[in-house]
Design a binder for these strands. Structure first.
Lengths: 191, 191
DNA sequence: ACGCCACTGTACACGCGTGTGCAATACTGG
DNA sequence: CCAGTATTGCACACGCGTGTACAGTGGCGT
């Protein structure tokens, strides 16, 4: 059934989130299904992981493009703050991507994440050009570092606490070069 | 011979730096030795990794305690800047620790790194108490995030370029709450 | 009732990395 | 030159995860 497939996907995200190198067996059991069944839906482990990643990229890209569209006129720091706020629930859910990017399928995963990386870099670049973000690092690196920290914080105490969302927003803004008072204000002005 | 042992250790650091999940075979070959020989020096893979980690912790701790001692009177941000500057060559060398911390021996490695983490948190705490570091995150988390970024940058373009040391120092200082002008100054005042 | 379909259960082949055993061989210091 | 030690070269056992094969079972709609 298609419901089973989605359940496997959801459970896999949880399981891999806790243990990135979990095997098909563990995932199957956690999904209340037999290993063989998982292979019926996903011919190989890579297929599973790829599907998961595509899902993540799709959702995150949607958020980022939406933010870019609605804040096209605002300062990049405000856009970033809104992005992180809306990204937060996803960041915790897909925190496993951090670990997945290195190891086994790193190559394949990295490729899927590529387009998102470019969007991110673009936003940071806009901020640097506008003078709201610092230029101690090229946009490509700085954006990676900043959202890497966001994911790292999301991985922390294991829950999507709103408190942490605030901290993640502030921290990432500061490392982007936004002064603390302004960063705090932006983080608190989020819905 | 003891020289062989050290060579294995050195090579293992390189190999694992490139590919954290490299097997004993790859390490042995890279060291110009047979797999069996590696096992003569390190009974298990964990022994090898643990030895490597202990070495890293020892060297890094030495740097941090030394900095703490010589800058006990200075502001924490200056101490941090000096710490990163002196840590830099090691950070690149031991960048593999980032990956090692998760996966297989994560537990064991984490334990070894514990004492160092505390030192780090202590320094950040001092900065927070002194008002030079921001308090958007508890010292324990903030310190982890900050030196995580340093290692991440060290892992980037694959060389211990001095330029990157500067960027790493600035970035970490800013996320600790140090305003950009001050962060830049501190980064440039390093020997 | 019947057939379709998802899922189960079990078994097997395969590759791969770990760790061990042991005889043979190179090397080094006295 | 000889002894002792480091290193080599296989061989093997083991565990583990992947991916496949195939017969069996349960539900569900028509």
């Amino acid at each position: 059934m298609n419901e089973t497939r989605n359940r496997i996907l959801d459970v896999a995200l949880d399981v891999l989130g806790e243990k990135p190198d979990a095997g098909m067996g563990e995932i199957a059991t956690a999904a209340g299904v037999v290993r063989r069944t998982v292979y019926d839906h996903f011919p190989s482990r890579l297929d599973l992981v790829r599907t998961l990643t595509e899902r993540a990229v799709t959702e995150m890209t949607a958020v980022l493009t939406d933010v870019n569209a609605s804040d096209a006129d605002a300062d990049a720091d405000a856009a970033w703050a809104e992005f992180i706020a809306r990204l937060w629930p996803l960041a915790h859910r897909y925190r496993v991507l951090l670990a997945l990017r290195r190891g086994e399928f790193g190559e394949a995963i990295h490729a899927l994440l590529g387009p998102l990386d470019e969007l991110l870099a673009g936003l940071v670049q806009r901020g640097q050009d506008g003078g709201v973000f610092a230029k101690h690092l090229p946009a490509a690196l700085l954006s990676q570092a900043a959202y890497g920290v966001v994911f790292a914080i999301a991985d922390h105490g294991r829950s999507g606490a709103t408190l942490d969302a605030r901290a993640a927003t502030i921290t990432s803004l500061m490392m982007l070069g936004v002064p603390e008072p302004r960063a705090t204000t932006l983080a608190d002005n989020q819905p």
